[in-house]
Amino acid sequence: MTVDAGRELRLTLAHTRFQVLETVRIPIAVIGNMVFPALALSFFVLPQREIAGDTQLATQAVAQFALFAVMSTCIFTYGVGVAEDRAQPFDAYIRTLPAGPVPRLGGRLLSGGLFSLIALVPLLVLGAVATEAAPSAGQLIGGIGMVLLAGTPFLFAGLAIGYALSVKAALPIAQVILFPLAFGGGLFLPPEMFPGWLDTFSGFLPTRAGRDLLVHVTTGSGATVFDVVVLVGWTVLVAALAVTAYRRDQGRRFR
């Protein structure tokens, strides 16, 4: 490892530590991310014993809400969190330092990934205790990796929101994006329950692509090559929007 690479790594870890501490100082932010997906599973799945009592369907349902947990964490952590940071004088000071944007963005990615994993814990525990979901160890590990990959476009969506909008605008926009995408992607109700037109439309959403890939990893069925194309395409598109928003904000505030 070169001296510059070691320096970047240390700065990235320092930013990660700072952002984790900054988040946990507001416990409700962490608790909300942990509790809400488990509550959604309780409301939508547990009362339906034909789903909760079937191993395949229960595993599929837990996978869907796992993606919702990661998706909501990414959109709110990066969208609202970045917008709040931009409103603070300390953020403007950090962005004038010679370290560059990589450690700051790297810290955001690591802290967001950590809180995404934390958000899965209550959901997985509830799924194991209250349903018949029973993925193998390999499926569980693969599912955790897949859900993080499937959350990538929402990570970039959060960054685009955070760098493009003020705090007052970021929160409602994050909510408007989160719930329609979650419902349309089959995270609350399985796509098999959709009417034909909605099922067709849903196939072009990143939530549906991520959901189908995740279900495939955890149950062995449900994905096509088209899902991979859709997820990669959305990731590239939203990443470009995030980069554009960052550069625009950088040029407007620090020129």
Rank of each mutant, 00 (worst) to 15 (best):
A160L: 08
F76Y: 12
M146F: 00
L46N: 13
G100H: 08
A150M: 07
F18H: 07
I161Y: 08
F115W: 12
P101S: 13
G79V: 01
F179C: 00
I177L: 15
F194G: 10
Q60P: 00
L126Y: 13
E50W: 15
L187D: 02
G100Q: 08
T219L: 05
L165D: 04
L67F: 12
A169K: 13
S136L: 02
F18Y: 11
R208T: 13
R7F: 14
F183K: 00
M71K: 04
R17C: 11
G53D: 11
S116Q: 14
G127F: 04
L9T: 08
A69S: 12
D249Y: 14
V62N: 03
A239Q: 05
V236Y: 00
S202K: 06
H216P: 00
G6N: 13
T73H: 02
T59V: 05
A63H: 01
L213S: 05
V225R: 14
A38Y: 04
M71Q: 11
F43K: 03
G6W: 07
A69P: 01
L149T: 09
Q19Y: 02
V225G: 10
M1K: 07
A174H: 06
S111N: 11
T235F: 10
F115Y: 13
G142V: 03
L155K: 06
G79R: 00
L140I: 01
F36G: 00
D54A: 13
G220D: 06
L21W: 13
L21M: 14
A58M: 08
G142Q: 02
I161V: 15
I26L: 15
F204V: 10
F36A: 14
A242T: 12
Q139P: 01
T152R: 01
G113M: 09
A170C: 05
V232Y: 05
R248P: 07
P153L: 05
P195N: 07
T235S: 13
E84K: 09
L124E: 03
Q60M: 13
G220Y: 00
E22A: 15
V167P: 10
V80E: 02
A58K: 01
D249S: 14
A164C: 08
P180Y: 07
A209T: 08
V35P: 00
D54V: 11
V125Y: 04
E50A: 14
T244Q: 14
I177E: 01
D249L: 07
F115R: 07
L120T: 02
V35R: 00
T2S: 15
G100V: 11
T235D: 09
Y78P: 01
R255V: 10
L126S: 05
V167W: 10
G158W: 04
P191Q: 15
F154K: 01
F76H: 08
L110S: 03
L159W: 07
P98V: 04
D91Y: 14
T2I: 06
F36P: 00
V82K: 01
T207W: 09
L165C: 07
A130I: 03
V3Y: 10
V225L: 15
L231C: 04
N33C: 06
L189P: 00
L159Y: 06
A69N: 03
V20I: 15
